[in-house]
Write a protein that binds this DNA or RNA. Structure first.
Length: 391
RNA sequence: GGGCUCGUGGUGUAGCGGUUAACAUGUCGCCCUGUCGAGGCGAAGAUCGCCGGUUCGAAUCCGGUCGGGCCCG
């Protein structure tokens, strides 16, 4: 175990925006920010080895606590020397609290708009009762359980247990969920202290799409001894796109003066990354590059904003094209294979197709973040943003 | 020369007397933002080789014909 624990240093600030570069130091090495954090749900970035992940330029990824609880079980991971040893990933890691699964695994039912919980996921002031996605067994999961599980998993950066809300939502319910999240946050801090835990704990700001609630939540977390902040329940609950960034406008002015790293949960599209960095965000996690890779979507700058910077390699028009997936890319995939070959692999559902597309997309995201960092350092963030987002 | 089989959307098949002919794949389109996801949804596409007959009704039964395959001489 390395001796240097967490620190966050801001290295440069853009003069015209809130964009900044920095370094998060962890016991497993540093993370350059702004950073993109890919998702390795089940203790793997699907289809890639740790070496391949690293070679894409990825410095950190996030594993899902909820999934580890059921398979293989946190004790098993702990016996395997924590996630780092279990996966043989020697670099920084993040874990999610498990709270998000109340949203992602629950039925999109009545709870959307009412205060009543009538789902297979039952939420109380104590925590969340989950019905296992694998065998239907019910388990209870609260702030205490979440921190304890994340403690055993041993990631460098961990998340406070929160309630991720649906949209649309009644304000009364959003307020209640936020208050619960605050109560749970306090419990998380207590449990962490009791465990003499040295992991870096992020508090998660909630409050849905309501300005006063979000400000309330940001103020609450700004005054608590969390090492970092995360903004939750924004991009994945069907909130109108406009609201997603309004939430940052409401909360970041409160959080930024505290000089702690700020993570934007679930954010992902290229355009969204530029907008969020401009407002002061330091890191993001998102399934987009990896999940879409398995669906045959290849990211390229040349596809442009209107195509969300990607194209579908499975289309018949790529059947015989001998050019690389992305001409301007220097990743392993693009320097060794053609569009035609990837098209073939996807049509045959060959495993290598998923792997090569994932490698490319992660490289694309890591490279994008690197370009953004350099631009911020050179005072050219807005220039780079405009170059990418021009229509 | 004789016998047996098969012929259904681009491709491979199911249906073997009765609603708008089913499925897979392919084509085209849409979707995916703290991963239930090595996907999901949708559209187009066949007058069931051809001709005739039986029947209220035939892709389905019968006869002929053309084409493919197999077997016996």
């Amino acid at each position: 175990m390395a001796s240097n624990y967490f620190s966050f240093k801001i290295l440069s600030r853009d003069k015209k925006t809130k964009a900044k570069t920095g370094v998060i130091n962890t016991p497993h090495g540093k993370i350059n920010t702004p950073a993109f954090v890919p998702v390795g749900t089940a203790a793997t970035i699907k289809s890639l080895t740790p070496e391949e992940i690293k070679n894409c330029g990825i410095e950190v990824f996030i594993v899902n606590t909820y999934h580890m609880i059921f398979r293989p079980g946190v004790e098993t991971v702990k016996k395997g020397d924590g996630l780092h040893g279990f996966m043989n990933w020697k670099f920084p890691l993040m874990t999610d609290s498990g709270g998000f699964q109340a949203f992602s695994l629950g039925e999109y039912g009545p709870r959307n708009v009412s205060d009543k919980s009538e789902n297979m996921v039952k939420i109380t002031d104590q925590g969340i009762e989950f019905k296992s996605a694998w065998d239907g067994k019910k388990i209870f999961f609260g702030p205490h359980e979440s921190i304890l599980a994340q403690h055993k998993l041993g990631a460098d950066l961990i998340m406070a247990f929160d309630e991720c809300t649906f949209y649309p939502i009644k304000k009364s319910y959003a307020k209640r969920a936020m208050q619960r999240t605050h109560d749970w946050a306090k419990t998380c801090l207590q449990v962490k202290k009791q465990l003499n835990n040295k992991q870096t704990l992020y508090g998660i700001i909630q409050g849905s799409v309501f300005e006063d609630l979000r400000r309330n939540s940001a103020n609450f977390f700004a005054g608590k001894p969390f090492e970092g902040f995360a903004v939750g329940s924004v991009a994945n609950s069907r909130e109108p796109r406009k609201k997603v960034f309004q939430v940052l406008d409401w909360t970041l002015p409160i959080l930024l003066p505290v000089n702690k790293p700020i993570h934007f949960l679930g954010i992902g599209e290229v355009e969204d990354i530029f907008i969020a960095i401009e407002k002061g965000i330091d890191s993001f996690d998102c399934v987009i590059p990896t999940r879409l890779a398995r669906m045959g979507w290849i990211f390229t700058k040349s596809a442009g904003l209107k195509n969300k910077f990607r194209f579908d390699i499975t289309k018949s028009r790529y059947h015989s094209l001998k050019s690389p997936p992305d001409r301007s890319c220097r990743c392993y995939t693009c320097t060794n294979f053609t569009k035609s070959y990837l098209n073939h692999l996807f049509r045959c559902r060959e495993l290598l197709g998923y792997r090569l597309a994932t490698i490319h997309n992660l490289y694309f995201y890591a490279n994008l973040m690197s370009q953004i960092r350099t631009a911020i350092e050179n005072g050219e963030f807005l220039k780079l943003k405009q170059e990418w987002l021009k229509v």
